[in-house]
Amino acid sequence: MSDDEILHQYLTCTMCGFCRPVCPVYRVFENETCTPRAIVGLAYGLLRGELDVAQASATARLSVSCRACEVKCPSGVEILKVIRWLRRSAWRQGIGPEKKRSAVEYLKKGLSINGKQPRVEQQEDVEVVLFTGCCERTEYAVVEEVFKQLGVSYSVVEQLCCGLPLLLEGLEDLLREHQQRALSKLPREKRLVTACPGCAYMLKEAGLEVAWLPRFLSEKLKLHQLKPVDQRVVVHEPCFGLRYLNAGEDLDALLRQIPGLTLVKPEPWCGAMSFCCGAGCGWELRQEGDGPKLIRRERVNQLRGAAEKVVTACPHCYRWLSEEVPVLRIEELVRMALA
C-alpha cells in the first residue's frame, strides 16, 4: 500500500469509534492507543513525520489480525491494510518480535515457519490433497480417520506455508516470491482440502481450487446416514473462516447436518462479530507480550458463559483454546456421527 493510499484511509476514517468495542486488543488492554482508529491515526503520524516507526507501529504489532474492526467500520476503512503498512515499515527498520523474524527467515530458505522441510506426497489417483499448512500431520489424525470412514482418497502436503504470515506482516514482495516458489509444488489439477481457514483463504487467493474442511465434510455427509450426537456445544467460529474466507455459512451448515446436536452461540460475540481467540491463525502467537493470552481469557469467559463444551473448526483456535478449556474439533463431531 502506498503512502497516498494510507492517507486516503486516514481521511476516510471519521474516528467514529465503532471499531473500538469489537477490537479484542482494545478490550483486553483498555487503552485508546490500541484501538483500530488510533492505529489509523498513528499511521498518519508516521506519514507526517511526527512519530517514528517504533512509536507508530507499537500497537499495530499487537493486532491479532481478526478483522472485526473492518466488518464493523461503516466508512469502509481498510484497517488491516494500514496495520500491515505499519508492520512492514517496522520490518524495514528491523523492529519486530524474534519469533516472527526467525519464521520469516525460514520461509526465505524454502522451509516452513517451524524450520521444517515441506513434504509433498505425489499420488496421482487420489480424490483430494490434504493441506496441513504449518500444522503437524498428527493434528490431522482425526481428519484422516474421517476421510477413511467417508471413503475419500487423499495425499498429504505437510509443512508447506500458505504465505499468510507474509501477508499479515505486509511483506508483499516476499509473499509473491514465496507463492511462486512454494505453491508451484502443489498439484494444480487436484482439489485441496485444509482444516485451517487461513490456509484456505490464501490458497483461494492464489487461484487454487481449495475447500475449507467444514465445506468439504458438509458435501460428503449428504451421502451418509448419521447417528445422533447428543451433545450441547458452544461454537467458536474462527475469524479467518468468517471474516477472510466468508465461509461462516459452511460451518453452520455442517453443524446443522449432525443430528442431536444442541448448538449454542455466545451472543453477541458470534456470527460476523465472533470474537478472536487470540491465536491469529497461529501466527499472532509469535508476537511479544501477553495480548494473545489475555484475549484467550476473554474469549473463554464468553464461551463458558454459554456452554461447557466448545467446538471449533480451526486447528490453531483448537490448539490455543485447549490450553484453557476442553475443545472439540469439528471433525471429532463428524466422527461421532459416523460411528
Binding site: 485508546e32 492507543t33 507499537a58 500497537t59
Partner: peptide, 16 residues
C-alpha cells in the same frame, strides 16, 4: 500513566 508519544498522539483524536 501514559506519557509515550504514541499514546499522546492517539488521545489527540476524537470524532471531531
Amino acid at each position: 500513566v501514559l506519557t509515550d508519544e504514541a499514546s499522546k498522539y492517539a488521545y489527540g483524536f476524537d470524532a471531531s
